[in-house]
Nucleic acid binder design. Structure first.
Lengths: 143, 143
DNA sequence: ATCCCAATTTGCAACTATTGAAAATTAGCA
DNA sequence: TGCTAATTTTCAATAGTTGCAAATTGGGAT
């Protein structure tokens, strides 16, 4: 059901097949992104990567994220937080952002709603951003 | 039906009532925004304003846009174009962005779709961004 | 009509997110 | 093992936006 990014091993093959090289930096990022449901920013990935590979550059992180996005292995999403979030779940889905803890969750809808009030617009896709309080934040006794 | 920003005259009263001053810069922006359905950016408003009032500063434009947004007279929307767009239509609505000409249109949906796959998230609001080709761009013989 | 002071405008520096460019390094095939 | 194009790194540059301080000004009080 989830259409996740391919595994580090599969990406290694895919990269080589495309003429792209598989460097230690890229392998690390493949691993950090695999099954990552935190919707990380380039910067949070850079921090995480730096811990395991001191000296890796932020530029390389951006580069690799862009490569993966172009290959369709990653989805770049903008939930209005100022920086792009990257999502290895490339299936057709939407997002819910917690106003309290800023966590981003994947959500699904039965069918994209029909829009009204605009004749002749050919919709290619629709992305919904829900805002509110996540289970953890709304469940706890609020401050 | 449309819940548009109040008129320049009404805003003048509202500003004074709140202890905010009504300057020529602000009056100009009130006018430029009234009934403006182009979803302008701060910068496009600054260009327009500069034509009528050379010397007005971009900082003032940002300031006033933020003030109006805080007062609920304006909605700041992010359609992923890199810069914020401002919408004097403050009713509950959504947006359609043309991939060709980048125009942003207001759209309405019957009801916000229920989301699935996330238990306990208390939705405060939902914003949908549609992408595709607007009537003008999809109708014309493509380049 | 004039004063006065808090609100505003300006100018500019600072900041964040991201990309461009060039030199040094390296993956991976021959 | 060598070669070369791809990659990484470094650093500068860009866009959008905000912070700050000095100069200006709106508008109620006099």
């Amino acid at each position: 059901m989830l259409s996740s990014m391919r595994s580090p091993e599969e990406l290694t093959v895919a990269f080589r097949a495309t003429g792209l090289k598989v460097t230690p930096q890229r392998q690390l990022l493949f691993r950090l992104l695999h099954d990552n449901c935190t919707h990380p920013t380039a910067d949070s990935l850079f921090s995480e990567a730096s811990r395991q590979m001191p000296g890796i550059s932020l530029r390389t992180v951006y580069q690799t994220l862009n490569d993966l996005t172009e290959m369709g292995e990653l989805q770049s999403i903008d939930v209005g937080s100022g920086s792009a979030r990257f999502d290895p779940n490339v299936s057709d889905h939407h997002h819910a952002v917690c106003d309290e803890c800023a966590a981003v969750h994947d959500v699904y809808v039965n069918r994209a709603p029909e829009m009204r009030g605009l004749e002749g617009f050919a919709v290619a896709d629709a992305h919904i951003v829900y805002r509110g309080l996540c289970a953890a934040c709304s469940g706890s006794v609020k401050r």
